[in-house]
């Protein structure tokens, strides 16, 4: 089965999913702030130490680092799935229900429910009836190019399409922040490239704020405007890089000198983080 475009028409007027204009770096309103956040497991394993991060509206932040650097731990802390042992995470204006969308490494769909029912889940858990939110569900699925698959079951879809459903579910509540934990790591190279391009189109389309965990330098440079490089043992932030190339970025960006330069900088930072000579 052929995967459709993640964003079929970027001129498509938004009815329910509000388009948030993305301001230049430095002028964006704050979404949340992590200050001196640390996580220690079993009293002696430091998974994360003194992490400082300010997330602004419209940011596309990649957490880049080797395994064990605490990037997934940071994501779980932000998601509220575990509590920091030190420091705090503050949402600007407090966190409301539906402020957060999450995409895991696996599509994490309910196999007994159709695509539409899966995307409806966040609303169902807030007690909204399906007719009330039908337009939001259908809109989210059209944004990921799956309008024709509302009534399909997950097992009928390819790996890439399942991931798109997962993304639609994260988008559907129009969240202030979307967390993505290596969402495309299990996919083949071709599907991953396609989803990267489509994710960027989607980002320009609805102006969402994303924190994206990855261990791929190329993925982080292509997608994000901020790269947070992390190191392991103990997990910590080493440095933050800005990718200044403007959005929307097309497939042509992948072959530009700008892209190559940024990849080189990010690679060097990652090598430093891993304690190897650059």
């Amino acid at each position: 089965m052929q995967d459709g475009p993640l964003c079929p028409s970027c001129e498509h007027p938004m009815s329910d999913l509000i388009h948030r204009p993305t301001l230049p770096l430095g002028q964006r309103p704050k979404v949340l702030e992590m200050s001196r956040v640390g996580k220690v497991f079993n009293g002696n394993v430091t998974a994360l130490r003194d992490m400082e991060l300010t997330v602004n509206e419209g940011d596309f932040i990649s957490l880049l680092g080797p395994s064990g650097c605490g990037k997934s731990t940071a994501l779980r802390l932000i998601a509220g799935l575990s509590n920091p042992t030190s420091g705090r995470i503050l949402w600007d204006g407090g966190q409301g229900r539906g402020d957060l969308g999450v995409v895991f490494q696996e599509p994490t769909l309910m196999p007994w429910a159709t695509v539409a029912q899966n995307v409806y889940l966040p609303f169902r858990l807030r007690g909204r009836s399906y007719p009330e939110v039908r337009s939001e569900v259908e809109e989210a699925l059209s944004l990921v190019g799956l309008s024709a698959f509302l009534d399909a079951y997950p097992r009928e879809l390819s790996g890439g399409m399942k991931m798109r459903v997962s993304i639609a579910r994260a988008l559907v509540t129009n969240p202030r922040l979307i967390l993505m934990d290596e969402p495309f790591a299990a996919l083949d190279e071709i599907t991953r490239h396609k989803l990267n391009t489509d994710l960027l189109a989607l980002k320009s389309n609805i102006g969402c704020t994303v924190i994206f965990v990855t261990h791929s330098v190329f993925e982080s440079v292509f997608l994000s405007d901020r790269i947070v490089v992390m190191a392991a043992r103990p997990g910590r932030v080493i440095e933050e890089l800005a990718v200044t190339a403007p959005y929307p970025r097309s497939e042509a960006f992948r072959t530009s000198a700008d892209y190559a330069a940024h990849c080189q900088i990010a690679s060097r930072a990652l090598h430093l983080a891993m304690g190897e000579p650059a």
């Binding site: 509220g80 799935l81 229900r97 696996e106 858990l125």
Partner: peptide, 26 residues
């Protein structure tokens, strides 16, 4: 139940009853 789905239900603030009804029973 799939542990990621469990996490997802937690993130969306599902009640005990909702988790049972929509996740564990199916």
């Amino acid at each position: 139940t799939d542990h990621n789905l469990r996490d997802l239900f937690r993130i969306y603030g599902a009640s005990r009853w909702q988790r049972l009804r929509y996740l564990q029973l199916p």
